[in-house]
Structures are given as structure tokens and as C-alpha cells.
């Protein structure tokens, strides 16, 4: 028996909106510690890891570990029927082939339940080693989204370079080139507008903008995004999900061969 009640149901709506274009079908893994997901895009170039810790739910009951295979587009369709301030409860029986989403309005005057069929999904779980990153950039998520969107009108790839001077996003295309440099800015008064760069060593990596733009669908979840870079390793683009967890996107860099 699984029963997860999330007062901030809007968070789950935003999580699904940020996943559904990258991944079609995925297994949500439920355990005593939380509700999580790891899935790759169809080309296995990008991976998303989601964790919503059990403490973040108002009520969290998970009698035994359960894997719920869901079509993320269909799940997003159902969650779109919840209002942003609705309380969302996810329910499933151990042997059931369906999951129920219950939406309650904050003053309890409207209660809806939507039942969705589950799927059997063969998913491959990859081991992601703990890495020491050469550079970690924390910046406003809206600024990062704007940069990815702007650069993708000019080129297909972005070179992200971190030096003492700041973080530089560069692209080139048929019509020309573009470089955007963001300098460190601690923004003491408004921490959500800060750009903080922790650099062990300068690093420069090339990524497909198509995926970066897809990751920025998570922008409504968090004011800040963290971009962790190391030479010859996938970049990690992380958005915090309130106080309860995170959504992390991994993207393999392009390499010269």
C-alpha cells in the first residue's frame, strides 16, 4: 500500500512539466526514504534523477518498495487537472495495475480522483559515481534559461567555460557567433539573484543546446540553478524542489575524436 499526500501539489505539477518532454516512460521508485525516479532520454545522452524525500510529504506511507511505471505525458495530463494550490495524494495498492491521483482544494470543497493505468517498463538504472567537480556555478535559473534560449537561436551547441573571470556561454552558427559572460555577483540583498562560482580549475565543455533547453523546463521549480562541470564528465544541472529534494539533469559533453 502506497499513500503519499503532498500539500504543495503544485510542486508535482511543475516536476512533471519539467520531465515529460525529455522522457516518455519511467518507473517511479517508492521506498521508505522517498519518491524517486531515474530515467534517460531515448538517445541515452541525457539522464534525469528526481528525489522527493519522504519528510517533505504531509503523509507518507510506503509499506514496501514499489516501482510504478508511468507514461509521463499521461501523468502530466492528469496532474494538469489539479489546481496549483490543490493538495495531491498519490495512492496505489501493492498488486494493482493502476495509480490514483487525488486532488483536494485547500478548503476541501472539491475533491477529485483520477485513476491512471500503470505500465511495465524495462528501465536501466545507471550508477552515478560521486564526483569532485572542477567548477560549480550557481546562478538565477531564469537567467540560465534565457541564455540557453537566446543561444539556441544562433547555434546548436553551447561551450560553457569557467575561469576566474566568470562563466562564459558561447555558440556559433551560420549567421555568426555569440558570447555571454556572467560574472560572480554575491547579491547579498537578494540571494535569489546571486551568481556564485566555485572554481578549482578552469574548465570548458561543449553541450547540445537542445537538451539544455529541455532542462530549463524546470525553471519554475527554483529561483536558482546549479551547474557542476568537470572535464570529460557529464554536466549536472540541478534544481532544488522546495526543501524536499531535487531534480538533476545529466548531459554527456560533446567530445573531439
Amino acid at each position: 500500500m502506497l499513500e503519499l499526500r503532498l500539500v504543495q501539489g503544485g510542486l508535482l505539477k511543475k516536476v512533471l512539466e519539467s520531465l515529460k518532454d525529455l522522457v516518455n516512460d519511467a518507473n517511479f521508485d517508492c521506498s521508505a526514504s522517498g519518491f524517486s525516479l531515474q530515467a534517460m532520454d531515448s538517445s541515452h545522452v541525457a539522464l534525469v534523477a528526481l528525489l522527493l524525500r519522504s519528510e517533505g510529504f504531509e503523509h507518507y506511507r510506503c509499506d514496501r518498495n514499489l516501482s510504478l511505471g508511468m507514461n509521463l505525458n499521461n501523468m502530466a495530463k492528469m496532474l494538469k487537472c489539479a489546481a496549483n494550490d490543490d493538495i495531491v495524494t498519490i495512492k496505489a495498492d501493492d498488486a494493482s495495475d493502476s495509480v490514483t491521483f487525488m486532488f483536494e482544494s485547500p478548503n476541501q470543497d472539491k475533491i477529485a480522483d483520477f485513476e491512471m493505468k500503470l505500465m511495465d517498463i524495462d528501465s536501466e538504472h545507471l550508477g552515478i559515481p560521486e564526483a569532485e567537480f572542477q567548477a560549480i556555478v550557481r546562478m538565477p535559473s531564469a537567467e540560465f534559461a534565457r541564455i540557453c534560449k537566446d543561444l539556441s537561436t544562433i547555434g546548436d551547441t553551447v561551450v560553457i567555460s569557467v575561469t576566474k573571470e566568470g562563466v562564459k556561454f558561447s555558440t556559433r552558427g551560420d549567421i555568426g557567433t555569440a558570447n555571454i559572460v556572467c560574472r560572480q555577483n554575491p547579491s547579498i540583498d537578494k540571494p535569489e539573484e546571486a551568481t556564485i562560482i566555485e572554481m578549482e580549475e578552469p574548465v570548458s565543455l561543449t553541450f547540445a543546446l537542445r537538451y539544455m533547453n529541455s532542462f530549463t523546463k524546470a525553471t519554475p521549480l527554483a529561483n536558482q540553478v546549479t551547474i557542476s562541470l568537470s572535464a570529460d564528465l557529464p554536466v549536472v544541472v540541478e534544481y532544488r524542489v522546495a526543501e524536499m529534494g531535487y531534480i538533476r539533469f545529466y548531459l554527456a559533453p560533446k567530445i573531439e575524436e
Binding site: 541515452h44 541525457a46 552515478i128 547540445a208 564528465l233 557529464p234 554527456a252 567530445i255
Partner: peptide, 14 residues
Amino acid sequence: PPFQPNLHRFFHSP
């Protein structure tokens, strides 16, 4: 042009 490897080059199934 640079080559796009997939994630299996970096991460492995446990």
C-alpha cells in the same frame, strides 16, 4: 565536428 557520446561512456549499470 565534435562527437556526441551517450551516457554509457561515463556511467555504468551497477
